[in-house]
């Protein structure tokens, strides 16, 4: 399991400074939540870590590897998986295929071996299926296994996205608003699953979330972003009582 260290991260889009000199660190096996009002730059942090675009300044280190300049498709091989706030599933493929694709970073066979179904390709395929089935079992997705993702209810799709990220066997997992749009029952399930993944697999988890209840329940530490800057950092209880955080959320001027 790997930690994540972000130092002096800044980025701006067309004159708007989305992040200003943000630094934080996540210890291996820790659950860190990033909270903050809309537009605070939470998802931007994720997009920078998963290299969807370049930072203007700062460095990102995962484990002992500098990933600031990696290509976006090289992030998976480092062991970082993520989910997306607006769901980026492979809609017209089955749940199983979605999970199997997450194994792409672990691919072992060549195109020719795949076309000819050589033993090497078959072994790889069986191995992927084994891993995918383990995740399906963990998340109780058996009844959806061969369903097309586009036809699933929203809550199930959110779960599939979480499961897909897990299929990568990540060392660091980034969850972007996993509880958004879930009903209370699904939300309770989710809290359990997040804690379960960390406790059993030891995965480091970074969470962007609005639901303060969920954040308080699962996180070891909370980071508050406001207007692209780091506002506060601490355990959930400390953060909940921090006057600057309360002001930022309620919109009062500080």
């Amino acid at each position: 399991m790997i930690g994540l260290a972000v130092r002096g991260l800044s980025v701006s889009f067309g004159g708007v400074r989305a992040l200003r000199d943000v630094s934080f660190a996540v210890a291996p096996g820790e659950i860190l939540s990033i909270v903050g009002p809309n537009g605070a730059g939470k998802t931007t942090v994720f997009n920078l870590v998963s290299r969807l675009f370049d930072a203007d300044a700062g460095t990102i280190t995962a484990g002992d590897r500098d990933i600031t300049y990696l290509a976006r498709h090289e992030i998976a091989a480092v062991g970082i998986a993520r989910t997306f706030q607006n769901l980026e599933l492979f809609d017209h493929a089955s749940v199983l295929d979605n999970l199997l694709l997450a194994r792409h970073a672990h691919r072992q066979s060549t195109v020719v071996a795949q076309i000819l179904r050589l033993p090497s390709a078959m072994r790889a395929e069986v191995e992927h299926r084994l891993r995918a089935e383990q995740v399906i079992e963990r998340f109780e997705l058996e009844r959806f296994r061969s369903a097309t993702v586009a036809n699933l209810p929203y809550g199930a799709r959110k779960l599939v996205e979480f499961a897909r990220a897990l299929c990568l066997e990540p060392k660091l997992l980034l969850l972007d608003e996993p509880a958004a749009g879930l009903n209370p029952e699904e939300r309770a399930d989710l809290a359990f699953r997040i804690a379960d993944v960390r406790d059993e697999l030891g995965t480091t988890i970074v969470l962007v979330e609005h639901d303060m209840g969920l954040v308080g329940e699962v996180s070891d530490r909370v980071l508050v972003l406001n207007d692209g800057q780091l506002l506060a950092e601490g355990t959930p209880d400390v953060i909940r009582r921090d006057p600057a955080v309360i002001a930022a959320y309620l919109g009062a001027a500080t």
Binding site: F84, L89, F90, D91, H104, E125
Partner: peptide, 23 residues
């Protein structure tokens, strides 16, 4: 197989495909 799934992933969401290691 692996290659075909990468194709399908590109079709449905290029962003997610890249995030899962598809070049």
């Amino acid at each position: 197989s692996e290659t075909g799934r990468a194709f399908i992933a590109l079709r449905d969401s290029e962003t997610a495909a890249a995030a899962f290691g598809v070049n």
